[in-house]
Simulated scan of single mutants.
Amino acid sequence: MVARDYGQYDGITRGLELVGERWALLIVRDLLVGPRRYGELAAGLPRIPSNILAARLKELQAADVIRRLPRSRVVVYELTPYGRELEPVVLALGAWGFKALGDPRDEQIITPDAMTMSLRTAFRPSVAADLPATAYATRVDSTELLIRVDGPVLDVTRGEGPVDFAFATDAGIRRLISGELAPDRAIACGVVQVLHGPGELLHRFATTFHLAA
C-alpha cells in the first residue's frame, strides 16, 4: 500500500507515490549524508510532527527505500541500495531549486545535513580535479563542517581537523556559490569572515563549488 494513489500508470507517477509525500524527500536527503537515529532525523527536521515522521519512515521502509537496523545497541535508519539511487534525483532537484532560492525568511534555518547536500550539489568534480587538494572548515550560522576536496573526490563531515582555510558565513553563501558575489567582495561586505588561512583560497572554494542561479 502507498500513501497516495494517483490512478495513473508510469514511472513518474509511481516515483511520486513512493517519495512524493510531504517530508519524504527531506528524510531521504538527510539519509544520503549517512545513517541516522530517529532522534537525529527529528532534530534535522525540527518542524516535522512526530506522528508524520513515524508514518513517513514506515512508508519508506515498505517501499524498500530505507531500512531499520540495530547498530551499537541503538536503531538507525539508512537508505537501501534502491534508496541510494535517488541521490542524482535529489542533487538535480537541489540544483533546480537553487535557481529560485531567494533570501531566507527569519524562521528558516540551515541544518548540517542540508548544508552538506548543498555542497554536494554545487561541487564540480571536473574542476576540482585540476586544483590542489584543499581542506576547508566552514561555520554557517551554528553549522560547522569540515570539507575535504582531493581531486574529484569530496568529503564533508562534522567535526574539526587541520584545514588550509576556515571561514564563517550565513545564508549569504548562496550569493558566493551563485557567482553573484565575487570572493573578494564577499569578504569585503562581510558575507564571508576569514577565520584561518589566506583569503585567496576563497577563490578556489568558489571555483570548486558553483551553481548557476
Score class of each variant (00 low, 15 high):
residue 117 M to G: 00
residue 178 S to A: 15
residue 48 I to Q: 04
residue 8 Q to S: 08
residue 122 A to M: 02
residue 48 I to A: 07
residue 127 V to F: 07
residue 17 E to R: 03
residue 44 G to K: 04
residue 120 R to W: 11
residue 83 G to C: 09
residue 21 E to Q: 15
residue 48 I to S: 04
residue 193 Q to W: 01
residue 97 G to C: 08
residue 212 A to I: 11
residue 75 V to P: 02
residue 81 P to F: 09
residue 4 R to T: 15
residue 23 W to Q: 06
residue 125 P to N: 14
residue 114 A to K: 08
residue 207 T to P: 00
residue 188 A to N: 14
residue 202 L to P: 01
residue 194 V to G: 06
residue 196 H to L: 15
residue 82 Y to F: 14
residue 203 H to V: 13
residue 66 I to T: 07
residue 110 I to Q: 03
residue 116 T to N: 07
residue 142 S to L: 05
residue 147 I to S: 00
residue 192 V to T: 01
residue 199 G to F: 00
residue 35 P to E: 01
residue 18 L to R: 03
residue 62 A to L: 14
residue 118 S to T: 15
residue 186 A to H: 01
residue 148 R to I: 02
residue 16 L to H: 09
residue 88 P to K: 09
residue 87 E to L: 14
residue 195 L to F: 04
residue 206 A to Q: 01
residue 159 G to W: 05
residue 17 E to K: 10
residue 203 H to P: 00
residue 121 T to D: 06
residue 160 E to R: 12
residue 82 Y to V: 15
residue 104 P to W: 10
residue 126 S to W: 07
residue 30 D to V: 02
residue 151 G to Y: 03
residue 131 L to E: 04
residue 148 R to P: 00
residue 8 Q to M: 13
residue 137 A to G: 02
residue 2 V to G: 01
residue 146 L to Y: 12
residue 17 E to C: 13
residue 2 V to C: 06
residue 112 P to L: 10
residue 163 V to P: 02
residue 69 L to Y: 04
residue 173 I to M: 03
